[in-house]
């Protein structure tokens, strides 16, 4: 990221170019931005990208599905600030290699998750119904998500999400939750970009907890673990064949 026009902008810098006033403190979702660009970057050149711990996990999910050529990507590890870790309620903030920033410990809990889990299931349902009624169908949660990669999005399929309807209804959010269950890396970009202020990161964290408790599965942790839900349609995984499915 770079400071320009009184703002902080994501930038792509060619080799040898002056990077200008570089900033690393604004949480742009660089993996999503790169995913948009990648199909157009057909020159085969290497791409270095600033990588937080969550981005590293996103890359693992991207590599796993063969969307990026692993050999082209160079990771520049960024340790998140304390403030960012608190904002993300992140328990796992330190990338495998820290090139920029001081590593800080993660936080163990998400206050809203705890509050919700202490509610009765009826209260909890009421909470989420209120939250989802604010949805204005901007698709920011999918547009900015680093691990939403389907060519044909089920949320644009009329059978499941009727056209026009605002708010789009509970099924929109439940379908999305299901579709991301085995790949969400809890970067929090959906929550940050949601104009309605729906606590989508908490929603994700609650699903992830169930996956951990029930299946001992966490997305983005190990590049050799197959996606839990995805149909592979005969495509081989990169590296060792998966033994779990």
């Amino acid at each position: 990221m770079r400071e320009e026009h009184g703002n902080v902008a994501p930038v792509m810098i060619a080799k040898g170019e002056d990077p200008g006033d570089v900033r690393t403190d604004v949480p742009y979702q660089l993996m999503t931005i790169l995913s948009n660009l990648y199909p157009w970057m057909s020159d085969g050149k290497k791409i270095a990208v600033l990588t937080r711990r969550c981005d590293e996990k996103a890359l693992a999910e991207i590599f796993k599905r063969g969307y990026f050529d692993r050999a082209r990507i160079v990771q520049i590890g960024l340790a998140c600030s304390k403030e960012q870790i608190a904002a993300c309620r992140c328990s796992d903030p330190v990338p495998s290699t820290v090139d920029i920033g001081e590593p800080h410990a993660g936080v163990g809990s998400d206050a809203l998750s705890e509050k919700l889990m202490n509610m009765s299931s009826e209260e909890r349902l009421r909470f989420w119904i209120y939250q989802f009624r604010k949805c204005n169908k901007c698709f920011a949660c999918t547009a900015n998500c680093p691990v939403c990669f389907c060519d044909e999005c089920v949320l644009e399929e009329r059978t499941f999400v009727p056209e026009r309807g605002v708010p789009p209804g509970m099924s929109f959010h439940l379908i999305r939750a299901y579709h991301l269950a085995d790949k969400c890396i809890e970067c929090g970009e959906c929550e940050r970009s949601c104009p309605a202020g729906i606590p989508l990161l908490t929603f994700r964290k609650l699903v992830a907890k169930d996956f951990r408790d029930m299946y001992k599965f966490s997305p983005g942790d190990d590049k050799n673990v197959s996606p839990l839900l995805t149909t592979l349609e005969g495509e081989a995984l990169e590296g060792d064949e998966c033994n779990e499915c």
Partner: peptide, 30 residues
């Protein structure tokens, strides 16, 4: 931000530091 590759517009990225939109857009903006 308009994402541009060689004079081709490929997408929209919200601006997180903008005082008015704060990194959020509606479906028309995207």
């Amino acid at each position: 931000f308009l994402q541009v590759v060689d004079d081709r517009l490929i997408g929209v990225v919200p601006c997180k530091t903008d005082e008015i939109s704060r990194g959020q857009l509606c479906i028309k903006g995207y």
